[in-house]
């Protein structure tokens, strides 16, 4: 984790400034994202949590360059990044491994799309298989793997692209809780080794605290930053930390804010149904 000194001087890897996104809906405009601002330092792991139905995915799509905001700025290393797709490697909630490709071929997909020759791309992806606990499964097909392994293969496909920032959209959301804990533990380990800059969307407060340097809590729609908490737990972390008093205090703090926002989001949905 960077020291206080470095944070003041270094240019943030990601700067999000006054980001807003509106959609035209029947009878007016719906504000989905409203003036969201935050920074992410190089090598920082930041989690974003928010009530379901808040504009998290929209925000992610804007970061990934798939959608353009109505107003506001996104900068990567100080340069405008709106509509640019080359900075972020995106990992969606579904593993989206293609059944017609082997695991190695799936892992190399991003490189191939970017024009790396097929053989070289696959060789590059294969090098990472041991680190991702997938050695021996290079030539298997996705349907032969367990959920946890598929998710690791999807992360491998994301990481191998060698982009500056990882965008992880609830990567473990579909796994059973035991596998999820193992995956979090494993991710925490590989992240310590590689120091990727990562932004993780999650619904899981425990996951957010365990993995992150900072946790950002978003409000109900229209989305704003409700809380930005630095998690000062020593790295590398192990599962024992999750039962410590400090950990519980972070969880408590986040849970209160998040539930408050969830109630608002729920009320909005009820209104939406009533109208």
């Amino acid at each position: 984790m960077p020291t206080e000194q470095e944070q003041v001087t270094a240019v943030p890897r990601i700067e999000v400034r006054d980001l807003a996104k509106q959609f035209a809906v029947r009878g007016g405009v719906r504000e989905v994202v409203d003036n969201v601002s935050f920074d992410v330092a190089p090598g920082e792991f930041v989690s974003v949590i928010g009530p379901s139905g808040c504009g998290k995915s929209t925000m992610f799509n804007i970061l990934a360059g798939l959608e353009t905001p109505t107003s506001g700025e996104v900068r990567v290393d100080g340069r405008d990044a709106i509509g640019h797709r080359e900075h972020f490697a995106y990992m969606p909630q579904k593993d989206l491994l293609f059944p017609w490709r082997t695991i190695a071929e799936n892992a190399a997909l991003g490189l191939e799309v970017q024009g790396v020759p097929r053989r070289k791309a696959r060789a590059q992806a294969r090098e990472l298989f041991p680190a991702f606990g997938l050695a021996g499964f290079e030539d298997s097909h996705p349907f032969e793997l367990s959920g946890g392994m598929r998710q690791r293969a999807a992360l491998l496909r994301t990481v191998v692209q060698g982009r500056e920032i990882l965008l992880l959209d609830e990567p473990f959301g579909a796994l059973d809780s035991l596998t999820r804990i193992e995956m979090q533990n494993w991710l925490q380990g590989v992240w310590s080794d590689h120091s990727w800059t990562a932004v993780l969307i999650t619904h899981d407060i425990r996951e957010a605290v365990y993995l992150s340097d900072r946790v950002i809590v978003l409000s109900a729609r229209p989305t704003r930053v409700r809380l930005d908490v630095r998690i000062d737990l020593e790295r590398p972390r192990d599962l024992a930390v999750t039962t410590s008093a400090e950990f519980a205090a972070y969880e408590q703090q986040l849970i209160e804010v998040l539930h408050d926002e969830s109630r608002k989001a729920f009320a909005q949905q009820q209104e939406g149904l009533a109208s």
Partner: peptide
């Protein structure tokens, strides 16, 4: 073809033709 798969391909920098070749065709 999964819409999210198309999004994934686009995030990797694929254009419409590449998306067709890698996702829609198979």
């Amino acid at each position: 073809a999964d819409r999210e798969a198309s999004n994934l391909l686009r995030s990797m920098g694929a254009g419409r033709f590449t998306e067709f070749r890698y996702v829609r065709l198979p």
